[in-house]
Design a protein around this nucleic acid. Structure first.
Lengths: 345, 345
DNA sequence: CTGTTAGCGCATTCAA
DNA sequence: TTGAATGCGCTAACAG
């Protein structure tokens, strides 16, 4: 009779308090509790305080599942990120999560290792199961962008990247302009042979950077040499650097990103070349280490967290207006001059 | 009478199919649909197929809110991460998310900028609102660890890091051993003056690495000099390096992490010193760039994704057994020999 | 093997 | 200003 005779030892002591409990303690109906919770007007301040007190006493947590069930809103958005140690994604996750939280959204994350169509589709499926109200996908590869255009019309989505897509909203950085700034800088220094170590050809960002390099060279009446293929890694920069050092024909190298530049620097030194005296080097991204490399790296800065915030804004807009946007937004990068570039000998 | 006369233009075309719709189309009860969904036995294969077909036709998505409401399980776990471009957290998020997904859990992420107690407590509160079944918190600072011990008894939690805590399960790397390996290596090379550029003193990991350095030195009968304070950044390594170069009394430096080592290398070169000939350098972490620095960096490797997986395992165990564990697990790091160390001149 | 019933905790009508 | 009823979509218990 004492209750709990059959209590199962492994259960948490007290079941979590629900609205009814709060209501009882405050001497009101559970309805009124709901009202104060949702900040409806028409609740006497005095009643409100009693309810608030009761909630505190019972350590009341509103049940989001029940709430979502009836409102048909999960207050959650999905985030698809790419597994990587590249700075970009990490900073963006932070920016996005931050913005989402401020707007009252939870964020559910799915990390994918590759950006193949199938993988991304799986991630989307998983997020749909979760009933997310919208999705932000870091989609730097063509295949990923293609997958995004397959999400149902009624699910808002924003891609982060610069891939071409007919029907999905994308936000990224204007890589082409960034690259041109870098090359123009090198040209103004007097360089005429400017090599490029590119990123993976399946990445639109890589293609844009290469295009910018090509355009700037072309505008100066210089025929672009064949770029070296890379994969964003220091390793690829290192290997490309070894080859470049053997040729000894270039006075400057534009790297697809800073990691590549790190590897390049290493290869150049190993070959006995000096930077910037023998070879000028420019990177892309402006990772936190860039100013403290030897020499401090001239590079193109991207504001990743701005991209993150912006993508959330665009998503929120779609959610609120219930319209699928196909807007395309490109933020401007900024050339940061440091000591890895100088006039050629 | 034709229905939809009052249809609101901005609504998605078709409301999402629910179980009842599937049931009707398949000519069964909604219960049977639920059975096939949850893979209960006792469903005739034939019926099963009809149901599956119907689900496909209607593009049925199960409603997780409704499911969570009745099962009292959100199938979600919370992840508190630290805003940073440090490799560790990024790799661990991946490992954790991966493991969680394989086990059928969603993961909801909260990124915090600082690890102050209040910030972490807020993150926990937010996750509790979401009714997560457990929390993994990347908690590399003392204040964060302290906050973790405040979560209610019935919410499983695992901290990632090496902080001391009476009542929360933690998994991390044995930094002390890692540091000792590094110093022993340096000692065996013949070094007798081995400086240390530390991490932030509020980080237990930093303290452990320093302790390992101190212990190894002590064991060799050497009195440890005063370590230089750093903050994990390349900048701090650079500044410390400038100072060390002025003194010119050390033959080797053990850095708290690889970023610090990057800055140190830069400062050393700037001062006209050669690595490893004049000064040997050892890092910690083994970031992807480490093998491609100049010179390739000898460092202590941590398996971040293993830490991530392990932390999930421990969390899952707590969830399943409904017991709060206080286990403490330390994975072994591994010294990776490269070219930044050699015998002193 | 399958269907019927009940209720999870909440927000949203309606009444009072 | 407050309370009573209704049902969101699903799973679990019980019948058949």
């Amino acid at each position: 009779m004492m209750g709990r005779i059959h209590s199962e030892g492994r259960e948490p002591r007290r079941p979590a308090a629900v609205m009814r409990d709060v209501a009882k303690l405050a001497g009101v109906s559970h309805q009124t509790v709901s009202r104060v919770l949702n900040e409806h007007a028409n609740v006497r301040p005095e009643t409100r305080d009693r309810v608030l007190d009761a909630m505190r006493h019972l350590d009341y947590q509103r049940n989001t599942a029940a709430r979502a069930l009836v409102t048909r809103k999960s207050q959650t958005l999905g985030l698809i990120t790419f597994d990587t140690t590249l700075v970009g994604p990490a900073s963006m996750v932070y920016g996005i999560e931050r913005a989402a939280r401020d707007a009252g959204y939870f964020v559910s994350i799915v990390s994918v290792r590759t950006l193949e169509r199938g993988t991304v589709l799986d991630a989307i499926k998983r997020l749909r199961e979760q009933a997310v109200e919208g999705i932000i996908a870091v989609a730097p590869e063509d295949t990923a962008v293609a997958a995004l255009s397959r999400v149902p019309e009624n699910l808002p989505i924003v891609g982060v990247g610069v891939g071409r897509s007919e029907d999905v909203c994308m936000v990224g950085v204007d890589n082409r302009t960034g690259a041109r700034q870098a090359i123009d800088h090198l040209l103004s220094l007097g360089h005429r042979t400017i090599a490029h170590i590119g990123g993976p050809p399946t990445w639109p960002e890589a293609k844009e950077r290469e295009a910018g390099w090509r355009e700037a060279l072309h505008a100066a009446g210089i025929i672009a040499p064949e770029p070296t293929a890379g994969d964003w890694s220091a390793r690829s920069g290192y290997e490309a650097g070894l080859a470049l050092a053997r040729e000894r024909s270039v006075t400057a190298v534009f790297c697809a990103n800073d990691q590549t530049a790190i590897g390049l620097l290493s290869a150049l030194y190993r070959a006995g070349l000096k930077v910037p005296q023998d070879v000028s080097v420019v990177g892309f991204d402006d990772i936190p280490e860039a100013p403290y490399l030897y020499p401090p790296l001239t590079t193109v800065r991207q504001d990743f967290s701005a991209v993150g915030r912006q993508s959330f804004e665009l998503l929120l807009q779609q959610i609120n207006t219930r319209t699928r946007s196909t807007e395309r937004m490109a933020l401007d990068p900024e050339l940061i001059l440091r000591e890895s570039t100088c006039a050629p000998a």
